[in-house]
Amino acid sequence: MKKKLTIALSAFLAISSILTAGGLTNYFKPQSEVQYSVMATTTAENKVIQQKLKRWGYYTGSVDGIYGSKTREAVKYFQRKNGLSVDGIVGPKTAAALGMTLSGSSSSSSQSSSDLNLLAHCVYAEARGEPYIGQVAVAAVILNRVKSASFPNTIAGVIYQPYAFSSVSDGQINLTPNDTAYKAAQDALNGWDPTYGCLYFYNASTSTSKWIYSRKTVVTYGNHIFAI
């Protein structure tokens, strides 16, 4: 009886220690490996992909042109059923099986919408769950910083400035944004600024910075206070 206990105990210890070690190793792995989505196709192409998959019963989401997790799952399902390598990415072979050709790199005049994507990522990470106008406002603050002399002069510079956004430090910036975040980012890029030039926003219930309270408050949207 005793030995069984001992063996069980040591086995438990062994397994748990291996798990812990694995856990520790994982902790230091960048999260982006898992969560970063590959944007290999354009919005227009994504819509075609979604329409086709929907018609054939692989996809149940909305036809919005956003290559989100639902679309990726549907593509994987399609690939599995059609004997293609299952990676969730529409490459030339999967495209051919879908009966479409990709524009790919042939259209040299098209640029990636990295500004929009980056902005949407930040909006989603910082303000998902906030009212829509609050999400537009967060995107507007980032763009106001780009214009301001006191901050970096590019969207990437502002978002990745050390200590600027907590979602960058904790990796939430790599979550895949939803429709609403993309729309809010697009609205702000089109010039919508519901904060009228604010450079700061903070959550009054979680903010630990005393300095931020010295800024003049302009408006509150949801849980965020916007200040200049």
Binding site: I7, A14, S17, I18, T20, A21, L24, T25
Partner: peptide
């Protein structure tokens, strides 16, 4: 087993 698991843990921690 205990020794092995301890070594495993040690190696894991060292690697991470």
């Amino acid at each position: 087993v205990l020794a092995l698991s301890t070594i495993g843990l040690g190696v894991g921690v060292a690697i991470s």
